[in-house]
């Protein structure tokens, strides 16, 4: 191996600083959430305790964060499933040329780049004028889909750009119907990417703030609840909540990454029968 140039060490140091910049603040509030009962919002630590985590469980100390968590979790699952199904279907559609595909594509890009507050405002206005009540599971759900679906679609484009069509041809040559080809050939091949789409769907929904702001109705999702707390909570209890939700997000990410990894292992084990004869 050739010797590493000086630029490698400079860039590596830069990269290290960048990672510190990314994670430093989160680690800091992680530490500060273990402040003692008399501790404040910044260092020095005034003792070490889990006081503020216990505080979270006292109903009157903060709002209805457990209800908010349940709603965000449920909404995240709804958005995740819908995003995966709708993105896969749309991805399949875009492989064939169909009239209007350019329009749908540009609509999806618009959905990605439009300022979130416009979705919030527009959906809120429509529901008001139709005399419907905004609710996180209806208007909030739809508003979040405008954020997660474009990501799902772009991932599907990336997947199908790399997809080897000869697998499908082989299936068809052996007499598989269109549905059988999708079910037994296409879906298993793209499965790891679908886990990626699901990860986007869940986490983007779980953390979404702007598009849910005017569309969630009287029951807050977790990000709305947290934002409400920032204006009137001045104790480390907000760090404790931040630490818990971040830990939850990290656990979710770990589960998804683990799923991709397990799938890859299984595939490596079962995939090839080369050299084993028939």
């Amino acid at each position: 191996m050739e010797k590493r140039p000086l630029s490698f060490y400079i860039l590596a140091a830069f990269f290290g600083l960048f990672v510190l910049f990314l994670y430093g603040p989160t680690l800091t509030i992680g530490i500060l959430s273990f402040q003692g009962p008399q501790g404040g919002l910044t260092f020095p630590m005034n003792g070490v305790s889990t006081y503020w985590f216990h505080d979270l469980f006292r109903e009157q100390a903060v709002g209805d964060i457990w209800g908010a968590f349940r709603r965000s979790f449920g909404l995240g699952l709804m958005v995740m499933v819908t995003t995966v199904v709708v993105s896969v279907l749309a991805g399949l559609a875009f492989r064939k040329r169909f009239a209007g595909s350019a329009l749908v594509f540009y609509a999806a890009i618009t959905s990605l780049v439009i300022p979130s507050i416009l979705i919030s405002l527009g959906v809120g206005l429509i529901f008001n004028q139709l005399g419907l009540k905004v609710h996180w599971a209806t208007s909030g759900f739809g508003a979040q889909l405008t954020w997660t679906l474009p990501f799902g679609l772009l991932i599907m484009f990336a997947v199908f750009n790399r997809f080897d069509k000869s697998y499908e041809e082989a299936a068809r040559d052996q007499g598989a119907t269109a549905w059988q080809t999708i079910r037994h050939v296409v879906l298993p091949i793209i499965a790891p990417s679908l886990i990626g789409v699901a990860l986007f769907g869940f986490t983007l929904s779980y953390d979404e703030f702007a598009r849910t702001l005017l569309t969630a109705g009287s029951y807050n999702t977790l990000p709305l609840e947290i934002f409400g707390m920032t204006t009137n909570v001045t104790t480390p209890v907000i760090y404790a909540l931040g630490t818990l939700t971040t830990a939850f997000s990290l656990a979710i990410i770990a589960v998804f990454l683990l799923a991709v990894w397990v799938l890859g292992k299984r595939r490596a084990r079962h995939g090839s029968d080369a050299g084993r004869g028939v």
């Binding site: 960048f18 990672v19 990314l22 994670y23 603040p25 989160t26 800091t28 509030i29 500060l32 919002l41 910044t42 260092f43 990860l199 986007f200 986490t203 983007l204 779980y206 953390d207 703030f209 990000p223 947290i226 934002f227 920032t230 907000i238 760090y239 931040g242 939700t245 971040t246 997000s249 990290l250 979710i252 990410i253």
Partner: peptide, 18 residues
């Protein structure tokens, strides 16, 4: 580098205060 993208923006803003 990408993991923070999947966590809450609001929490990441709050974490600058200390």
């Amino acid at each position: 580098c990408t993991i923070p993208f999947w966590t809450s923006n609001i929490i990441r803003m709050i974490s600058w205060i200390p």
